[in-house]
Write a protein that binds this DNA or RNA. Sequence first.
RNA 1: GGAGGCGUAGUGUAGCGGUUUAACAUGUCGGCCUGUCACGCCGGAGAUCGCGGGUUCGAAUCCCGUCGCCUCCGCCA
Length: 587
Amino acid sequence: MGEWHRTHYCGEIGTGQVGAEVVVAGWVHRRRDHGGVLFVDLRDRTGIVQLVFNPDINPSAFSRADLVHSEWVIAARGKVQLRPAGMENPNLSTGAVEIYPNEVRILNTARTPPFYITDGDDVDESVRLRYRYLDLRRPALQRNIMLRHRIVKIIRDYFDSQGFLEIETPVLTRSTPEGARDFLVPSRLNPGTFYALPQSPQLFKQLLMVAGFDRYFQVVKVFRDEDLRGNRQPEFTQVDVEMSFPDRDEIFRHVEAMMAAVYKGALGIEIKTPFPRMSWQEAMDRYGSDKPDLRFGMAFVDLAAAAGKSTFEVFRRALATGGQVKGIVVPGGAAWSRKTIDQMENVAKDNGAGGLAWAAWGPDGVRSPVAKYFPEGIEAMLRAAGAAVGDLLLVAAGPAPVVARGLGAVRLAAGTQAGLIPTDQLAFTWVIDFPLFSYSEEEGRLVAEHHPFTAPHAEDMDLIDREPLRVRSWAYDLVLNGEELASGSIRIHRRDIQDKVFRALGFTQAEAQERFGFLLEAFEYGAPPHGGIALGLDRLVALMAGTGSIRDVIAFPKTSSGADLMVRAPAAVDKEQLDELHIRIKP
RNA sequence: GGAGGCGUAGUGUAGCGGUUUAACAUGUCGGCCUGUCACGCCGGAGAUCGCGGGUUCGAAUCCCGUCGCCUCCGCCA
């Protein structure tokens, strides 16, 4: 740039600068060469401004500009002028004006990029990831990354204003059982031992409460070595929060206020607080999911009474064995084709249900493959479901968890199919009173539904030994539009209760001591009651940015096989490095 | 770990019911063009069809394997 100093970002140039001499710098977005007059669109992170070069007006600037190509880096100094009448470009924020440079400096040349630096150019994601620094130049990703910054800034400001301290916790820590697979880091100084990267700063934040910091938060990377998805990365970012002497409402209030500040500050959207609450049991009973999408209705209806009057073997068997018969009503679904209904049945089957019964209540009567099993007529079941003429009733039967999962998936598919899910709504809800334990078929034992430090409800304490699956906990999730945004709990701070939970989870005293001894010991030195929550930042930003993939809001994401296609990680290392780490690769 | 989809000039696609000079668009290069903004017009170059093997007189095309990317299930306290 020499002695030049940029005076404006490209996107800042407007009618306010007309007549002024400005210096802009950026990338050549496009050049349009008309033989004589030459237009160069100059781009930076704020937008695009048009530079005009005319050989009759300024031959030296023209001949210099004539050299440039796409993505060259240039600076230009010149006067801002209103465009000639009729030449304005309404698609450009700077479209009312243009710059007539009297001097251009070529700051760097560029190879022709493998794809256009523009939105909407549908390039294979692996190509984009290989050249991520070019992909990131695209306006959509620039917007996402800037939005992410804004959101994080608001979150930090909010917690700071409320007396929370951001405290860093170790990245090299200790492997703990339960939960996801750990990423391991070999210790050179201690042969044969490994650090683990944190799945969350859970234990450290509890120790910070024991240490008396009272209100903690951290925007922190965490790591889980599990298979990936569009909204799952091996490393991702949490907003981790913990408080001493809280009650649950206080934690909810902070999260609600933080979310309100984020939506207002980053998108200008007012959201309504407090968020509604729903027990886990109700969520499962009515929506078949612990993260119900409440942007639309179609709640489950219990059809046991009506189904009990049928001779349909599937219904009778479900009810006789303590299971359920439940249905959802699709408004206007009676007009659906057989093919569409079959698709719904496939959704049910893909999600573990045996099948899907249905009854379409058309103007000419009811059409249903199971009508023949209803000696008194199937209309009674339709009425019990609250269906009206024109509606479609979809029914699943079986054990409660099977009905929940199968019909829950059908509800989402049918809601989407029927166009009932408004995309412009924000349906926040707290799901509370999760069960303390669930049963792991795989491990043949109880596992912690949230984590082993979650406090049980006091009135359910006596159930821990007798009916552990019925024990409710102080765990809660924040759900937005069917996605889990945050998850937390009030923790156990008493050693006797913690011991009881460990016993129920099948840990011996010795095992508990080996794995969590430091925490249990800390609790003996005056642990305050405490609790907190962790919010998935990437998902929140993705939702706010309107993208389905968190890869679009992470600057340098990994593929679904955990690879970074740009730096080509993971990669083999030298034998010398392995030797130092006392590691030998299995042949 | 399992299922499915995709892989052809730089990029996006067509060709896939077997024999083509592997087509189109865009980009790129050259020429022309003084108000465009996805500028336009003319011309050129650019692909051993992801990789390996098999079937066949003949394979981008069919079969097997493998690698990569994407989606879903399992998994993700």
